[in-house]
Simulated scan of single mutants.
Amino acid sequence: MRILRGMTATAVILAVLSVAAKAEIVTDSIRYSHDGEAFEGYAAYNDALGDEQPTVIIIHDWDGLGDYEKTRAEMLARSGYAAFAIDLYGTGIRPERVERRRELTNALYADRARMRALMQAGLEAAGTQQVMDTDNAVAIGYCFGGAALLELARSGAALDGFVSFHGGLGTPEEQNYEQVDGPLLILHGSSDQVAPMSEVANLTSRLDEDGATYTMEIYGGARHAFTDWGASDRYNASADLQSWAAMERFLGQALSEPAD
């Protein structure tokens, strides 16, 4: 890991993207609707791998579906998975101001039924794509998306696994993990100021109590948003690469093996 200390965020991403660089990756914006509202997801896949590919659903951070999630989708496509980033805000709603981001996420936290319905709508949109096998799928989420991911897991969504990257870890008082349909992978930083280690301990207790299957990896010194190369003061190259590798191992176990 000594090499990682000298790598810039840009170099880290270029190194990851260089793997299978010759793959023919197709990307597309996918418009769909829920209760008359318009949404726009993002699909990425290797067209050479055919139809019904093992699929990864991506749930975005609080700034909405943007370049970060699109890049992650393309990275997954280069690893042999079809990827679909869902949209929880609506077409064209990509807030730049912190106040607006907080307003949008708080509205979803306050209406968990709507949050679940919007995630389900995204899953259904992914299922309309011929290359995507949503019966052979894992969901991943970043920050706010990690908190939403746990809501999706608690809803009993029929997925093969759930991966949270530095996500919110709180559990609403009236909820539990008894209906979780697949294993959980929690990837978290020990210095996360938004979801501190006390929340990690509380989540562990809840998961144990409800008999959920889960694995946690804690990255020493990593802060909140440690995978976000745009967050220059919090990005942690070592934790980013280690957590991505952990996710890939998880996908290899939870899903059918991707094609070479």
Rank of each mutant, 00 (worst) to 15 (best):
R2K: 12
R5G: 05
T8K: 04
A9H: 09
I13K: 06
S18M: 12
A20Q: 13
A20M: 12
I25S: 00
H34F: 08
A38T: 14
G41N: 07
G41Y: 07
Y42V: 07
A43T: 01
A43Q: 01
L49A: 11
L49R: 12
D51I: 05
V56M: 01
I57L: 14
W62F: 10
G64Q: 09
K70I: 02
M75Q: 05
L76A: 04
A77W: 04
A77L: 03
G80E: 03
Y81D: 03
A82K: 01
A83M: 03
A83P: 01
F84H: 04
F84T: 07
Y89E: 04
Y89Q: 08
G90F: 08
G90N: 12
R94V: 14
P95L: 02
R97T: 03
R101N: 09
A107F: 06
A110E: 13
R116D: 08
A121P: 09
V131E: 05
I140T: 09
Y142W: 11
C143Q: 03
F144H: 05
A153I: 10
R154S: 09
A157S: 12
D160V: 05
F162I: 04
F165P: 00
L169H: 11
G170M: 02
P172H: 03
E173Q: 15
N176H: 07
N176T: 13
Q179M: 15
V180T: 15
P183G: 06
P183D: 11
H188G: 00
D192L: 04
D192W: 06
P196I: 09
S198T: 15
V200C: 08
V200G: 02
L203F: 13
R206M: 05
D210N: 05
D210P: 00
D210L: 01
D210V: 01
A212F: 10
T213V: 14
I218Q: 13
G221H: 06
A222P: 09
A222H: 06
W229S: 06
W229D: 12
A231D: 13
A231T: 11
D233N: 14
S238Q: 15
L241D: 03
Q242E: 15
W244T: 08
A245G: 07
E248Q: 14
R249N: 12
R249Y: 05
A254T: 10
D260L: 11
